[in-house]
Design a protein around this nucleic acid. Structure first.
Lengths: 240, 240
DNA sequence: ACCTGAACACCGTTCAAGT
DNA sequence: ACCTGAACACCGTTCAAGT
């Protein structure tokens, strides 16, 4: 057997391991996609790959690391949209795309909460948003802050979208709002009291509209129109 | 014994129950405050109130309901700030206050994700934000949407603040960004590549500043200056 | 190096039984 | 009505041992 000779190559044809990281991660991802993050457990993955729970710990340090690894490649499943040339429109289009993609893979939210962005193939969205913001006259610092603000907003929207959907699926659980308002609150909370009867119709919420509005506010911070990087003290121009 | 006579009063002096909902909820809240939401379990609460896990299920339908009940009264611990008269400043002040209070009770975030706002004493913040937005000329629907947008943003910021803090406490876990950028990405991701070396300094992020910017954008949607409710078709004026 | 098995210290919740 | 005890079907992770 040639196994001994091939041992020095870290990942050669010889010495097939019973387990390999790709299978572990792919299995974890499948479980999450089919049954949600809550269904993922080390024991479950071990069972499905035909091994024992502790064998997995040779490939990942703990469950959180496995969770983070399931992120890789997810965004590549979605086609990259054509973006408009106008930087403001481009920024909004990229942000709406980010929202729309994540709405289709809601489990990703739970994983993103654990750590940073680990899917390299999603970085183009940050690139486009930051680049658009700078093209609109923001400094690099402002552009990065703008990206964060947009991300926080998109994330928050998606979390409560999922939360509302969960609650709607369990209608016997008591809804607290606006039912909890009583007559006595009218003096303290006049607006809410007045709006309560037509609360349903007031729930219309268009993410693209909100995004356009907040982007307007964020871009209005620009010191001058267009071309910003020059104004930034110590800014290095990106090569392009 | 007078117990029989007092039985019809639902909550009289007689028939002291071994368990009562207040103690259960207070114990749950104490555990969460001291050790985080992850430390809360039905078994743990039962042990601390000197009972068995299943006894709790006579007072709450499940763990989620108990979690939701821990929210009540939390916001009352924080002094209500003086708000400026100018509606735009009032909106921003209320939003910053919401952010600042929640930053001090981070466990609340996890519970809010489960359902709606259940702490009645926090409703004044929504009241002030919606009222300010309408005073700035937004329709009721726009004002409610503005509240939601601000809430999503605040929530998102707090989640990733907590997340970054957790990651910072575990420095041996690999940080993915911007270390994962390679030379080859320079062509695809020129801005990120250019910004990567000074990523640290670009992380300055002022929540009040961002809030002010997005509020500007949201309020710029107003159809006219000032006094809005009249323009709203079918709007009922709050009594005030 | 890679993997197993047993064990530790837990979970939420159902069910049947007690008072 | 209120509570207990046993049981079911799970968890993540440590540790010592095997090959």
């Amino acid at each position: 057997m040639a196994e001994g000779e091939e041992k020095k190559t870290k990942r050669g044809a010889g010495r097939p391991r019973r387990l390999d990281p790709e299978t572990i991660v792919a299995t974890a991802r499948r479980i999450i996609e089919e049954e949600g993050v809550a269904a993922l457990s080390m024991r479950r993955v071990a069972k499905e790959v035909g091994s024992t729970p502790m064998a997995l710990y040779h490939y990942v340090r703990d469950k959180d690391e496995l969770l983070l690894l399931t992120l890789a490649g997810v965004s590549a499943q979605f086609p990259r949209p054509e973006l408009p040339a106008d930087p403001r429109a481009r920024l909004i289009t990229a942000a709406v795309h980010m929202h729309q993609v994540l709405a289709q893979v809601p489990w990703v939210l739970k994983v993103l909460e654990l750590g940073g962005l680990t899917d390299k193939q999603a970085l183009w969205i940050a690139e486009e948003i930051i680049d658009s913001a700078m093209a609109c006259g923001l400094s690099a610092g402002q552009a990065v802050a703008t990206y964060r603000t947009i991300w926080y907003f998109v994330y928050g929207d998606l979390v409560f979208r999922a939360s509302a959907a969960r609650r709607a699926a369990e209608p016997d659980r008591k809804q607290h709002w606006p039912a909890m308002l009583t007559e006595e609150d009218a003096a303290e909370l006049p607006r809410l009291t007045a709006l309560a009867p037509r609360w349903e119709e007031l729930q219309r919420y268009d993410i693209a509209e909100q995004l356009a509005a907040i982007v307007d506010g964020l871009l209005s911070r620009a010191g001058g129109a267009g071309r910003a990087a020059e104004r930034e003290p110590g800014a290095q121009e990106p090569h392009m």
